[in-house]
Computed example of a mutant assay.
Amino acid sequence: MTALLAITLGFLSHSNMPNEIPLMAVGFGLRYSPDTPVPVSPDHPLYNRVLIDPIEEMPGSVRLSIARPSTINEGLKLTLEHLHMLAPTSAEAKVRLTARWVSYDGGGMLFGGKNATVTLHYRLTRIDSGAVIFDREIITKAMADNKAGGPMPTLRAATAVNFASIAGCLDKAAFGRAPSDCALTPQFHVTTRRR
């Protein structure tokens, strides 16, 4: 059974805006397929070791469609922090994660569509040598059960799923087990409620 992610005032929100889905969608009991990212243990190679650069090439239109760039960057940071991968300081980091914004599509939601897609490209490199450890494009989708909130909530959900996907993939990549397609499928839909 697919859960509904209700966007109501204050629900799972790390922002000051009401009715806004958070850009971190891990750790709240939300499920993904084929598996749900979980915090890594202290013996994991990436435990508190990842330094994150601001997302590159984010188009200006993202501000209107999803969120301010600073809010989106914070969503990626919070996701890795929650899963215990974010380095507490740059001096403790061993690897650097760079992300490049590729594309997003609201699926014509203003005209009846209910799907949103977000694509980012990620690269993980060793800080000491610059060697590339991981290099992958991730395309994630989210689905809305209604159109009351327009495309923004579902695009935000697709972005949050993308962040959950990179975190789950990095967990596996540390042991050489990253799948060719890192995208997670959310086992929840977005629904909005007007207040």
Rank of each mutant, 00 (worst) to 15 (best):
A67T: 01
L120R: 05
L23C: 03
A87V: 11
G130W: 01
P39M: 05
P42A: 10
L30G: 07
K94D: 07
M143P: 00
F11D: 12
P18L: 08
V102L: 15
E20R: 13
M17D: 10
P39V: 08
C169N: 02
C169Y: 00
T98S: 15
A160R: 00
L80V: 03
G149D: 05
N162L: 04
G10K: 07
M58T: 02
V161F: 12
H189W: 15
D181G: 07
P45K: 07
A6F: 05
I55Q: 04
R193C: 11
W101N: 07
H121Q: 12
V95I: 11
L51R: 12
R68H: 14
Y122H: 08
A99L: 03
N146A: 09
S70W: 10
A91S: 14
S103P: 04
C169F: 01
F175D: 04
V132H: 02
A178P: 06
S70H: 10
N162E: 05
R123L: 09
T2R: 10
I7T: 05
N19I: 00
E20V: 05
V62P: 02
I7H: 06
T117S: 12
F163K: 04
M85I: 08
K141V: 02
V118C: 11
A157M: 11
L83H: 04
D53K: 14
K172N: 01
A3D: 15
F175K: 13
D105N: 15
G106M: 06
N73L: 08
G107P: 07
R123F: 14
T159P: 02
E57T: 11
V26L: 03
L97D: 03
M109S: 15
A99Y: 06
